[in-house]
């Protein structure tokens, strides 16, 4: 576990905390894309299915996986129940069918192995790389975003961006390679880059 990996994971945890904190204190989910949140739940459930058989291998990984699935489900629960009146589907109009379809095609074409778990894992990696698009699209449509929503997107983007130096470090120290994660992670970081640029110039 290197500094980039741990900082990336912490950044992911912070993003979840920011999002839930924002919703609970403002008692609303204004500015949050429900579609992106559903995509993230699909990402975590399909990727962390291995909890069922690798649970005992790493307490750290298993705990984080449970936190990611649970917090994602809780976010959706809040958006569907407590804060439903503040959600406006009319500005959350990104066509996620293409993201899901494209990720499914890539997963079926290039998995590490043609097993259900590996294909679902690959699907989750590709889907995660584009899951922020409905949120960024919504941000662009509504113009000015709340500071807290902006911090959430930054922390979430920083998580995967920090995995890139982690993969480089692991390649040189332990000959670790994971081309699917690496390519998807680079695509994900590129999608965030415009947002990162605006964030840096603003804060």
């Amino acid at each position: 576990m290197n500094i980039f990996r741990i900082t990336g994971d912490l950044s992911h945890l912070i993003s979840i905390f920011i999002l839930l904190h924002k919703m609970r204190t403002s008692k609303s989910c204004i500015g949050i894309s429900f579609k992106s949140q559903v995509l993230y739940l699909i990402v975590y459930v399909t990727r962390y299915l291995d909890l069922l058989w690798t649970f005992q291998h790493s307490a750290y990984n298993s705990l984080m996986k449970i936190i990611f699935i649970a917090s994602s489900a809780y976010t959706i629960h809040l958006m569907l129940n407590d804060f439903k009146p503040t959600h406006d589907p009319n500005i959350d109009t990104f066509k996620v069918e293409y993201l899901i379809g494209g990720s499914a095609i890539l997963a079926l074409l290039f998995p590490y192995k043609w097993t259900t778990a590996e294909v679902l894992w690959s699907f989750s990696i590709w889907l995660e790389s584009v899951a922020i698009l409905p949120q960024l699209f919504m941000l662009q449509r509504t113009g000015e975003a709340e500071t807290i929503t902006t911090h959430y997107i930054f922390a979430l983007g920083a998580y995967r961006a920090l995995y890139i130096p982690n993969w480089l470090y692991r390649y040189f120290t332990e000959s670790f390679t994971d081309p699917i994660s690496t390519i998807a992670g680079i695509i994900q970081t590129i999608l965030y880059s415009d947002f990162f640029y605006i964030y840096y110039t603003k804060y």
Binding site: S58, Y112, Y163, P179, S181
Partner: peptide
């Protein structure tokens, strides 16, 4: 160099 068979990342 083989892709990790065991997923040790998140």
């Amino acid at each position: 160099v083989v892709a990790t068979p065991f997923k040790d990342e998140l």
